Computed example of a mutant assay.
Amino acid sequence: MIDSILADVLFSFYPLGMVKAPDLNTTICELLRDKAGDQPINLLEIGPTLVVEMGFSQEQIVNALFWLVSQKQIELMPHNQVRLLLVESKPSRVVHG
């Protein structure tokens, strides 16, 4: 809980128009899921999207990758490859009446 609050405070200072860094973790996982599922993929296949199209810095991406490794969500592999460890669809929202 405190980590979440701290992350929101730390990443709320990005310039307007930039995606907040906590969203970068989700974005990386979604790109990996969409492009490769649970198969290894070269980081160059998602890097240009993150840097050029979405405006993240290389430092932000590296930090997010190491965070995702520490959370056991991705695996960094030889030859500049990465693999998503948790391939699951987004949970559906169930409303109980």
Rank of each mutant, 00 (worst) to 15 (best):
M1E: 09
M1H: 11
I2F: 09
D3I: 03
S4W: 05
L6Q: 12
A7P: 03
A7G: 07
V9E: 04
V9H: 08
V9C: 10
L10W: 07
S12C: 05
F13D: 11
F13H: 12
P15R: 06
P15Q: 10
P15C: 05
G17R: 03
M18T: 12
M18A: 11
V19I: 14
V19W: 09
V19L: 13
K20E: 13
K20S: 11
A21F: 05
P22S: 02
P22A: 02
P22W: 03
P22C: 00
L24S: 00
T27L: 10
L31P: 00
L31V: 01
L32H: 00
D34F: 10
K35E: 08
A36N: 04
A36G: 02
G37Y: 04
D38A: 07
D38S: 06
Q39E: 12
P40C: 00
I41V: 07
I41R: 02
I41G: 03
L44A: 10
L44E: 08
I46Q: 01
I46V: 05
G47Q: 11
G47A: 11
T49E: 08
T49D: 06
L50V: 01
V52D: 14
E53Q: 12
E53R: 11
E53N: 15
M54K: 05
M54A: 03
G55S: 00
G55E: 00
F56Q: 01
F56S: 02
Q60F: 00
Q60N: 03
I61E: 03
A64H: 00
W67D: 13
W67R: 15
L68N: 09
V69I: 07
S70V: 07
Q71L: 10
Q71M: 12
Q71A: 13
K72M: 11
Q73F: 04
M77D: 08
M77R: 15
H79E: 15
V82E: 00
V82C: 07
V82S: 01
V82A: 02
L84E: 04
L86H: 12
S89R: 15
P91W: 10
S92A: 14
S92D: 12
S92H: 15
S92C: 09
H96N: 12
G97S: 13
